[in-house]
Nucleic acid binder design. Structure first.
Lengths: 124, 124
DNA sequence: CAGCTACGTAAGATTATCTTACCACTCGGT
DNA sequence: ACCGAGTGGTAAGATAATCTTACGTAGCTG
């Protein structure tokens, strides 16, 4: 895999993680003390991110750098990065909302079991 | 921790990993198709490494990017036991279902989070 | 429609990186 | 001691990337 490919994957992961975090480019830009167009270009793959920037992205999205880097599964953290994002979202819900969600999840899980698709994240 | 600190840590880790791999700067430079002074500057912390470069370093040193980044092993340890329970449920979902749920959660949060830093996007 | 937010993109100013070159240091062999 | 090869640090001009500001579009709301 070429380095350009890696950068493009990272760009896509950043965009995905930002969206799943419910943050706008402008909010991210402010958090990272960057200009909004910079975020736009990064996500478009037109601008590279430094390693330090990658870590900052991982911080504000609360995911591992390995996830943003699209590293192979056997090297990354035990928990699914998407779960990290999910947990972050969950922590913002009220207890009541969380309980409701838990019940809803039970239904989801039942549907899922019948199709039997085992976990993991989709790697490229 | 500032971003400069992160970059310096990464620089030190790269230097350490290279030495432990028994490679010279020249060898690394050749493998990564860089010039030797570039490696020298990177290890000195005078030159930043892009995210893609970081992954290439991790490859040739056979270490994880998390190691080069000095990342702590498990990032997600919610104190709330309810979150742990929820995370267990989430882990049983298919990736698609999880994605759908995440988008739904983002909408939820937007509804009861409307007041926070939503404004002030564009420049002065 | 008017106003707002989000996002993409262009262009000149600014800054970082690249490339070549030169320097000092170390180590074995002669 | 001298030499040659190997390693690593650094300087300087040319080159390339990024930053910063500004403008344009699209969606959504009252």
């Amino acid at each position: 895999m070429s380095e350009l490919d890696k950068e493009l994957i990272i760009a896509a992961r950043i965009k995905e993680a930002r969206r799943l975090s419910g943050l706008s480019q402008g909010q991210v830009a402010k958090m990272l003390e960057m200009h909004r167009p910079t975020i736009s270009e990064i996500e478009a793959g037109n601008r590279r991110v430094s390693a330090g920037e990658l870590m900052r992205f991982a911080e504000i999205f609360d995911v591992s750098v390995a996830y943003l880097a699209g590293e192979s599964p056997d090297k990354i953290n035990p928990s699914d990065p998407k779960l990290q994002l999910a947990a972050r979202e969950l922590s913002k819900l009220s207890p009541d909302a969380l309980n409701s969600l838990m019940r809803a999840l039970a239904v989801f899980r039942k549907d899922d079991d019948e199709n039997s698709s085992g976990g993991g994240n989709e790697q490229t």
